[in-house]
Amino acid sequence: MSGKIRLIDENGLRVDGRRPDELRPIKMEVGVLSNADGSAYIEQGKSKILAAVYGPREVHPRHLALPDRALLRCRYHMAPFSVEERKPPAPSRREIELSKVIKEALEPAIFLEKFPRTSIDIFIEVLQADGGTRCAGTTVAALALADAGIPMRDLVVACAAGKVDGVLVLDLNDIEDKEGEADVPVAYMPNLGLVSLLQMDGLLTINEFKQALNLAIEGCKQIYRLQKEALKAKYLAIKEEVETCLQ
């Protein structure tokens, strides 16, 4: 399967020099768009994703409104320049599927029943793709939702684990995803300890699958800490500024 490229070198390190259980460097920022009700930006390795949340707001078209809860809509979209070869801007089969998958990963975390007859719209724009965009997309979307002040049971964090060159690895990048043997994306609600998305692509034994799932959950917990910091940073910066002014 990986005849051409060696994904794990003789020292047990991966193509980008990471250990098997190491995440890519992650940078997150909250409140980057002033026109949206909530927004966030993430850089996970070379993947760069922007998320915007609008709502709860009136539903258009009106007939889609639900009488007992808010309608959650999600659009995952890749910019034409996000991949090496231009991607046509129209939503592809894959993007439509990921929109649905991300929506369903976030849905159990949101108190939709508090806003009947309204809609909450999430827009996830992939600016640069290097693997793991469905997970990073879920992570930023949760941040944008929290920034918009939408009541949630918990934040949602997502991270993938997989198998490349026979080794179980965390947070796959594009080459590892394409050339590797398996990919297991997991979305997780860390305080409640619930999994809201679990997929598998490729081949794993039952034992390997269990290990990969645990590895992914550990990755989620690490990202969750960064996610919380990013959420608080927006407000702590102002607080610190005020306090230094006082001294």
């Binding site: 009700d37 709502g55 108190f111 920034d147 002040g149 009541p151």
Partner: peptide, 22 residues
């Protein structure tokens, strides 16, 4: 907590003062 905000403990009540909401 269900929203981003400041936590307030007053007697037996626990509440969060939201930083953003509709």
């Amino acid at each position: 907590a269900s929203r981003l905000g400041l936590v307030e403990y007053e007697g037996r009540t626990v509440q969060v003062v939201a930083l953003n909401s509709v």
